[in-house]
Design a binder for these strands. Sequence first.
RNA 1: GUGGGCGUGGCGCAACGGUUAGCGCGUCGGGUUGUGGCCCCGAAGGCUGUGGGUUCGAAUCCCAUCGCUCACCCCA
Length: 422
Amino acid sequence: MSFKAVRGFKDILPGEVPRWIHAENTARRIFRAFGFQEIRPPILEYVEVFTRGIGQHTDIVEKEMYVFTDKNGENVCLRPEATGGVLRAVIENGLANESPILRLFTLGPMFRHERPQKGRLRQFHQMNAEVIGSHSPHADAEVIWLAWEILRACSSAELILDINSLGCPACRPPYRRALQDFLEKNAGDLCQDCARRRLTNPLRVLDCKNEACKAIVASAPHMDTYLCPACAGHHEKVREALDSIGIPSRDNPSLVRGLDYYVRTAFEISSPVLGSQSTVAAGGRYDGLLKAMEGPDLPGVGMAVGLERLLLLGGGANVSALSAGPDLFVAYLDDESLDTVLPWIIEWRRRGISVLLPYETVGLKAFMKQADRTHARFVLIIGEEERARREGILRDMATRGQSPIPFDSAVATITTILEETT
RNA sequence: GUGGGCGUGGCGCAACGGUUAGCGCGUCGGGUUGUGGCCCCGAAGGCUGUGGGUUCGAAUCCCAUCGCUCACCCCA
């Protein structure tokens, strides 16, 4: 085998596409139901679009971005997440001037140069929602609600929602300092990674899986005791809102997000059936981000659902309608018969009836096998005998019943039959 | 970047170091000349990931390399 797909990049084969389409359609329907509009930013952006927000010392920026120099010497990258591009588009096009609150969603591929494993690819797909312009905790709740609704509609797997408040520029720094002081006292017992993180990104130590670190973290100061009154109140309101919607949530003080721009609300929906990469959706509030990107000083909340992981959950609705075969398979036994049916096929196809037309004649038996394999609902048989009688044979593959179809009325008759059975 | 597991026809697998590397699924053809899904028969399809080595003899043992995969890390 000479050519292979690039590591971490996967083909989505015809057999799995119906599941993707189903998930995408479901999501689009739900986004609409929540009053969100679709936006489609490009996949390639200037590096700064992401480095501003995600944070210079996060793994994503440090080592996971597909960065390269364009022919004109500009630094561009394949987007590692959606929010940066959406916000850039909002700012560049002045969308915030058109409406005080923007509710946007987007679907598409993201790229991160990580080591592939189950539920983690280098090109993966997300469905994202962003609410721009609202400080209200109800906006946070709605974004979480949206993620929950999409997940629930696509899978019946067990889901767990964790939420936390990361504080704001007023109350996080004091906490960060307190945590850092605490970690310094225990530095000797931390794992190697955490010893490093202690200085660069102390919050991350909180969700380290190392047992020794867990033991230390257990007695570490908690963010919730440092939250300023405004943040504490906000967090409480988000929880209340989720309660009244009926979404069960779990307060998780060690929940941290990988992107620097989050303030206050951070959340994560995971499922135990996924294995190591168990997070299927996540998001949070990013109030300072628009301004940091030299846009208007507007607050925002967003979330992302991982498509591959969502599909890994399985247990969704049936997708039979999408994976069904053609309405009609045309078995023509000689060239003259093809001449007869071609005009009819033109008409059917224009009407949206799916007609599978073989490229060459084989025996009728072989045609029947082909028709069976493609799961065609009906087969139209036309050969010398039919032409002599001026009537074709329409066979219903499910019932095995056949009936003659006079040539004169063939188009209309078959159209009616096919449209009725759709 | 670090570890573990695995690389055999399109897919899933088998073959105690010993003849032409098998089986299932799939594909194609046939089972009376124009009718599918079951059954039966037959056919096509493999330099056993690659490169070295050990041996009279390697899919099988050793080394290297590449790839896949799971986990760490990180995250959707």
